[in-house]
Write a protein that binds this DNA or RNA. Structure first.
Lengths: 208, 208
DNA sequence: TATTAAAATGACACCTATGTCGTTATTATA
DNA sequence: TATAATAACGACATAGGTGTCATTTTAATA
């Protein structure tokens, strides 16, 4: 006989569980969250949840994947939408700056900061990291190709530095008390570095 | 009657437990480490360890405090040892760069990255953060006072940015595969930013 | 050497999460 | 409407960590 429920139903169920899991993660953090927590939050039965995910690790991974897809969707065509690459970079930075202020960002850090003791998790982080770096490299290289940047350091070094700073800022915002001005100042400092090291070619650009 | 053992004995015992705890932390990470782990690693009895520390949180805190004292010891008189503040900053950066490569650095991050769900831990991080920032501010301000720097951004902003970058680099080194050259490049990028934003006044300094 | 404060021991009862599995409810097909 | 595949349920046995406490050992003093 054919399968018992529709694909949509399965997907919905899965999404419900992930929604519940994300809520618990945001409230308790990743490590302390137990399968029991998610079961309770989802309103489903123990066996029911286990049918979809064997542990919180898989749930987290699934949430991250979904988030990645959404993030890429936001960024799609970024470079083709801006003649000035510097504007594209600023849009990226702004998107980063205005990330949702739930705890999920910091929970993601918690998840990755422990990857040194989990091979699979480490590989996954490495993959994400490379992806992010390549994104930035592509940005900068496009600026160089269009004759807008004349970088004083290797493009890959600048890309890594940018990523490092952005990650650090998200962390900093979540953990220590920074007011809006201090936050803005830090992003300004990043822009200052980028403007300087990229030697942006257009006078108009340097103001913003 | 007088107390049963000497102060030295108590301190030694305490130090032994912390040594064992640190080893377990480095091997397993902070969260997964149980009191049982530390008891087993220390070779003491359950009750014996509990007489000194009620949980792993207190152990971690004690280890951090000891480390802080040692770090300050390394840095003592840094500013008075260098006429050129830029050299002092570089010594600081080098000390950071050559931090021991055991896992304790990253375990410390794990500990602090979860502080948003633990008030006491958060206060402690805030205290540490302020301390670090003030250290950097003092550096830069001294350079300004000595007429060596002409910063293009507020001193406190530069200090925070520097701290952010250094923290990020430690994290990056621990989690993703960076070879020595890439690592060096990232520290160079930080120095590039600092040289530029501080407008170091002495031509000789700008080379190194 | 005898005394005694307290350091150290380890067994114990309690608690909570885990993963499984036999049973029940559900729904797409015949 | 009957049926059969399977989604969903929830009780259960297991495992491991926790904090305590009565008991034993230790070493500074008298």
């Amino acid at each position: 006989m054919a399968p018992k429920v529709s694909k949509e139903h399965i997907n919905q169920r899965r999404a419900d569980i992930l929604e519940a899991a994300k809520q618990v993660f945001c409230k308790k953090g990743f490590e302390p969250t137990t399968m029991k927590d998610v079961v309770d939050a989802s309103g489903m039965s123990r066996g029911g949840v286990y049918q979809y995910f064997p542990n919180t690790e898989e749930m987290m991974r699934a949430i991250l994947e979904d988030g990645m897809i959404e993030f890429n969707h936001h960024l799609s065509n970024l470079l083709s939408r801006h003649e000035q690459v510097w504007h594209a970079i600023n849009e990226y930075i702004d998107l980063h700056k205005n990330a949702p202020s739930d705890h999920f960002g910091i929970v993601t850090y918690e998840y990755f900061v422990t990857c040194w003791r989990n091979h699979e998790r480490r590989n996954y982080l490495q993959h994400r990291y490379s992806f992010g770096i390549n994104y930035f490299i592509q940005f900068i290289q496009t600026g160089v190709d269009r004759g807008q940047f004349k970088p004083l350091q290797p493009v890959s070094v600048i890309a890594k530095f940018m990523m490092n700073v952005l990650d650090g800022l998200l962390l900093e915002q979540s953990l220590v008390n920074l007011n809006d001005q201090e936050k803005e100042d830090q992003y300004d400092a990043l822009r200052f570095y980028l403007r300087t090291v990229l030697q942006i070619n257009d006078k108009r650009m340097q103001k913003e």
